[in-house]
């Protein structure tokens, strides 16, 4: 599966547009991590626990988007966007969306152009 945040896939041609696909996940941070982060807030700097938590969650949202695209028979998802919002205190929603398409190799003449 090819994934880009461009409107096309460079070097390939979009053959069919299969429409919007999306995936989301909501994660709550656990108390231990919150406590550590609270301490970390005294000295500042990166909160590594949260970086990992959110990266992992975003990957899950992406995976859900990709499996939705697979079900539609797509071989690429273009124009992918991310969005994050906090739902309740201590929980965040990670959301990924894009357009599922099928792409084909360009033939020689077009590739040269």
């Amino acid at each position: 599966m090819i994934v880009t945040n461009l409107e096309t896939v460079p070097g390939k041609r979009v053959a069919r547009n299969l429409g919007l696909v999306m995936g989301n996940t909501i994660r709550a941070k656990h108390v231990g991590r919150d406590l550590m982060a609270g301490l970390k807030n005294i000295v500042g700097g990166e909160l590594r626990g949260y970086t990992e938590l959110l990266a992992e969650a975003r990957k899950e949202a992406m995976d859900r988007m990709l499996s939705a695209a697979e079900q539609l028979g797509a071989n690429a998802v273009v124009n992918v966007r991310f969005s994050t919002s906090s739902v309740t205190q201590g929980a965040a929603e990670l959301f990924a969306y894009g357009t599922a398409v099928t792409v084909e190799e360009l033939d020689g003449a077009e590739a040269g152009a």
Partner: peptide, 8 residues
């Protein structure tokens, strides 16, 4: 990505 916190 990075999560960055402010100091006190």
């Amino acid at each position: 990505s990075i999560v960055i916190g402010s100091d006190y």
